[in-house]
Amino acid sequence: MKKILIVSHALELGGAERSLIGLLDAIDKKEYKVDLFLLRHEGELLSFIPEGVNLLPEIPAYTVLARPMIQTLKEGHVILTAARMYGKIKADKYVKKCGHTDSGVPLEYSHKYTYRFMPEIQSDEEYDLAISFLTPHYIVTNKVHAKKKIAWIHTDYSKVQINEKSELEMWSAYDQIISISDDVTKTFQKIFPTLSMKIIKIENIIPEKLIISQSKEFIPVEEMPDDSIKILSIGRYCTAKNFDNVPNICKHLVKQGMNVRWYLIGFGPDENLIKEKIKEEHMEKNVIMLGKKSNPYPYICRCDLYVQPSRYEGKCVSVKEAQMLRKPVVITNYATANSQVENGVDGIIVTMDNEKCAVEIARILKDEEKMKRMSQKCTEKNYSNVTEVKKIYSMCTC
């Protein structure tokens, strides 16, 4: 039996985390022994780890990476906290020098300068394949014994601010690099052309049976009443998802005479900003923040239209989940949009300009036949990508 180790951060609500559940679910546990190591045993998706996957015990040292430093210092993690502080100082200096406004360097450096003080993961075990599922990718490189090591890209690298030299060293340590789409590959290759030969595309695997089963869970009608058109968006409350522009887009829809409510499911650092924008645009009755939902699927089933208004994406899992549940989908024209929907067939790509975006959404909502056709097309396609797991199997035999 081949042995696979997958390392990730936690299982909080997020597209990458849900695709990890899909991957874990797809692997044949009769043929492969699957260990999962999480830096923190946290998150609403912990209970959805499939049967047959062995969740390794939490190692306290690894939890230091994502908790307040004053707390980790009080717990006695003196060296690790000091290393993390050093990484923070170095990152702040680099970010200031480069003029970054939304930098990924602090996260990368938090791992880069601490991993050497961490214990090994399963030091007495050699795996056939070790997978680092979320960046930064220093832990699997340095703290795992495996015949082959691979790392995953989940984001559009044309939109992230990084230390290219530092990340090149990090990625170069892997035997292969997994990209979730052709567009993600292209943006990654522009920055790291020397790594092109290492890249393999593996689409996000979505656990279809679980999603359909969960979608039947009851939710009170009052949460999404039928007295208006129901638009839904799901994702982290962060810059990438662009939810801070939803109140303005919604205001333009209302001005066009559309009786709409736009629901937002998620959590994150932009929560207060979105609330401020709702108040600023006087959209308190029209834009409703539902917050965290460990099971968003009944809400997808109740909406009339799913909209992903993102500034950028790697490949949005929520879009595929909405299509899997046969919902008409609208996404903005972010760089990787064409890898998400077949424009005009199983979804619509619209401009990111707020006013024009509202005009295009209104046009779609008024075209009942088009909405039905998109929904029908979704029933004809398989969005689970479950056969992609065969590419993982082939890596175990190389």
Rank of each mutant, 00 (worst) to 15 (best):
L46M: 04
K320G: 14
L107H: 13
C378P: 12
L55I: 05
M283S: 12
S339D: 02
E271D: 12
Y94S: 11
V221K: 14
E125W: 04
A82Q: 08
N54F: 07
D244I: 05
D346R: 00
V330I: 15
T336K: 03
S310D: 04
D175P: 02
C316S: 13
P220M: 08
A335H: 13
L253N: 05
P60L: 06
L129Q: 05
L80N: 08
H252E: 13
K390E: 13
E360H: 11
I202H: 11
L232F: 03
L253V: 10
L36S: 06
R311F: 06
L38F: 02
K201F: 14
Y115E: 14
L107F: 07
G314I: 11
I180Y: 03
V317L: 09
I202M: 10
V317G: 03
A16L: 03
I392R: 08
K251I: 02
E17Q: 10
T187Q: 10
G235C: 02
K241W: 07
I180M: 00
D124L: 07
K255F: 07
P296K: 05
K190T: 13
I202W: 11
I153T: 14
K143N: 10
P57H: 02
E369F: 07
I27F: 07
C301P: 00
G76I: 12
S375K: 01
E313N: 08
H145Q: 02
K285S: 12
I4C: 01
D183R: 09
I131W: 05
I278C: 06
H77F: 13
P225W: 06
I49W: 06
K201P: 06
I206L: 08
I177N: 04
T101R: 13
I70H: 09
K201M: 06
Y383S: 03
I153L: 15
L73G: 06
D226E: 15
A61Y: 04
